[in-house]
């Protein structure tokens, strides 16, 4: 269970361009479900996901993950939580150019100190499962959009996170690829992972895989 209590996020506090992106959000998200955040552009979906994923801190409010408070952790532990509990799939994939798919996939595991071979085998098996193992030794810029997305998913899964966060995962995909992505998410859910998605795409939030749709507007839940 993820619990959010009174989450506020204000950008540029005290400056003339001060902006309240999240306004007192109280929310509970069940684990082992697929939850989708929807809402118009600028409603705060990305902001909320990044706070949930320990990427940034809320201005006020707290978040508990399975009774563990994760909002006030020092940087090092926040990074550890981010690394071991969450897997991120960014909107533009954010793969590192010029290095291979395999290395990109392995990157989040580097700071863990797990043996190289273990990580590599793990990465290869994930790539196999996603059907892009033949591209493992290619630099990422040789990949097509859909392959890139799968590489990004593989990278998100390398540390076996319990929660996968995806921001606009279908933004650059056609509907066939989007359906494939939903199948992947369904598989992950079956494995017991929790999936949090921010998205405008009806194809996603109307899909049967999705357990819960959370609607946002102007920094609040509606």
């Amino acid at each position: 269970m993820i619990q959010l209590a009174g989450i506020n996020k204000t950008f540029n506090v005290g400056k003339p361009n001060e902006f309240k992106a999240l306004k007192g959000i109280d929310l509970e998200v069940a684990l082992n479900e697929v939850s989708v955040f929807i809402g118009p552009s600028g409603s705060g979906k990305t902001t909320l996901l990044s706070i949930l994923g320990c990427m940034s801190r809320p201005t006020s409010g707290r978040i508990w993950l399975n009774e563990r408070e994760i909002t006030s952790l020092p940087e090092r532990f926040a990074a550890e939580v981010r690394r071991e509990t969450f897997g991120f799939i960014f909107q533009n994939y954010n793969l590192i150019k010029g290095i291979t798919v395999l290395e990109n996939t392995m990157l989040p595991a580097y700071p863990t100190g797990i043996g190289h071979r273990v990580i590599r085998d793990r990465a290869v098996s994930i790539l196999e499962r996603l059907g892009i193992e033949s591209k493992a030794r290619e630099p990422v810029e040789h990949l097509s959009g859909g392959e890139r997305q799968r590489a990004a998913i593989a990278r998100a899964l390398i540390n076996r996170p319990s929660i996968v966060i995806a921001d606009e995962p279908t933004a650059h995909l056609d509907s066939a690829l989007a359906r494939m992505l939903l199948d992947i998410f369904a598989g992950l859910k079956q494995e017991g992972k929790t999936i949090l998605i921010a998205c405008h795409d009806p194809l996603v939030f109307e899909s049967p895989v999705v357990d819960r749709v959370i609607s946002m507007r102007d920094g609040g839940i509606v």
Binding site: A78, E80, R83
Partner: peptide, 11 residues
């Protein structure tokens, strides 16, 4: 990106 995927400052 590296920070986003879980590297911390010291890494």
């Amino acid at each position: 990106i590296l920070k986003g995927i879980g590297w911390d400052t010291s890494d």
